[in-house]
Design a protein around this nucleic acid. Structure first.
Length: 173
DNA sequence: GTTGAGCGTT
């Protein structure tokens, strides 16, 4: 936001201009449609993403707005920063990250270690997780906070069928 | 309609 960079390595202080804007301080009730209405005033959009809490499904109060042109993004950033939207004063800045983190594939992506002829894919395996993002961004470090195991659900216990059949048994009068 | 300074795996 400001150029008080005593912290030399802080990339968040002054993100470089780009077509992706981060919008922060949103009302929980501001939707992607609302944001599209506001930000398309400055130029054609390539996309809008509100970030939702995975557990609750509610907005986390920030979003990313993608412009087609960097000049429009610049204009939007300058004019929409500090704007009031749904009763909240929003902050708009160039985004630091450019996209969601690439999910960890969960399968081996290296070369085959033997035989050579076994696979029809010919070497490196690239399937649905390969969306060509590499040219825009490095492979982000996986955040293991999201991979922690939760406590087992009672629905998955061995008593599931008994409980369910009991709760679903028809009433008799 | 939680009250917030927060950069993303729907």
């Amino acid at each position: 936001s400001k150029k008080d960079s005593h912290s030399h390595g802080d990339v968040r202080a002054n993100p470089d201009p780009n077509t992706c804007l981060g919008v922060f301080g949103l009302s929980l009730y501001t939707t992607e449609r609302d944001l599209r209405e506001v930000f398309s005033r400055y130029g054609p959009l390539a996309g809008v993403n509100v970030v939702y809490d995975q557990r609750t499904g509610r907005s986390r109060g920030f979003a990313f707005v993608y412009f087609e042109r960097i000049d429009d993004a610049k204009e939007a950033m300058e004019r929409a920063n500090g704007m009031e939207l749904d009763g909240r004063c929003i902050r708009v800045d160039y985004s630091i990250t450019k996209r969601p983190h690439t999910p960890t594939p969960g399968i081996y992506m290296g070369r085959p270690t033997h035989n050579g002829g076994g696979s029809s894919s010919g070497g490196r395996r690239r399937d649905s997780y390969d969306r060509g993002y590499d040219k825009y961004d490095r492979y982000d470090e996986y955040d293991y906070r999201y991979s922690r195991r939760r406590s087992p659900s009672p629905y998955y216990s061995r008593y599931r069928s008994r409980s369910r059949s009991r709760s679903y048994s028809p009433r008799r009068y």
